[in-house]
Design a protein around this nucleic acid. Sequence first.
DNA 1: CATTCGTGGAA
DNA 2: TTTCCAAGAAT
Length: 345
Amino acid sequence: MTAPEIRTALLAWYDANARALPWRAPPGSGRRTDPYRVWLSEVMLQQTTVPHATPYFLKFLQAWPSVTALAAADDADVMAAWAGLGYYARARNLLKCARAVAEDHGGVFPDSEAGLMRLPGLGPYTAAAVAAIAFDRPANVVDGNVERVISRLFAVEEPLPAAKPELKRLAAGLVGDERPGDWAQALMDLGAVVCRPKAPLCDRCPLTAHCAAYARGDHESFPRKSPKAERPHRHGVAYLLTRGDEVALVRRPPRGLLGGMLALPTSEWRAAPFSADEALAAAPVAAAWRSAGAVDHVFTHFSLTLRLYRAEADAAGVIWTRRSGLTALPSVFLKAAKTGLNRLI
DNA sequence: CATTCGTGGAA
DNA sequence: TTTCCAAGAAT
């Protein structure tokens, strides 16, 4: 197999099969997407599906059409707009990055992979992707899709994540000088649409003639993966303190889980369940708390049962928010609020 | 190098 | 129902 043959075959496939995405210039159109849009979409797509990220991309673009507009935004507005998309460090770094570009780079994104790597929230993947897609630089863009495609193409036996360096080396051997942005997107589109994790559509793949896993007949067994640790379970209590139509919220500390986001007041989250007495002792204010059900939620590295308590009372030191404003909450708290308020929002 | 960090859709 | 997992980065 030769790299030029693979490039030619995949780019031809991409010309005919590229997905139309809001942040993408059609292949062969001679147009290039605004670096701001490339960056915004790439950050939103980190560990996030296209259908989930798309409405957020459109909403952000409407609210903040340029990197300088985003740099001037209020933190609370950006965090609220990100609510529900997850991995909230991305939103914090999004603002840091926008402000760095505005203040240190005259509002213009660096056009090199190395320059992009210095910006907050841009790691090896995103820096390479923006360099390739926005600036047509020949970068080795390796995401989960590319790792899967390469692992099958070369039948890499080493399991992930240990195989990452080897997969990146193999991917680098395929990168050429022609159409770097299209090449990067072609490889990712192939992984997303054809070379899928389950039930890959090999009869539609332009690379089967070059694919070692296809030749072996066990393409779906790649990439190999190391067994992952099981997810522990935790318990906590969330408090729904209402004042008429308003709900008491708090701002979570700027680091850690759900950092910087609005939230319901909660107890600590721990392995042992909370008794009723413990739940009342951990309440943010003294009030006539009544049990209001519970919700379960699954985070990346633990699952959570949140017992709910509700009371009607005034309080200081909280952020009183109308029920219509609860969309600014992360999903776990939106779920808790809907349940605890008896689905009245 | 291992851990921390969300969410919702699909099978 | 359970499991997997999607255009990863920061620490």
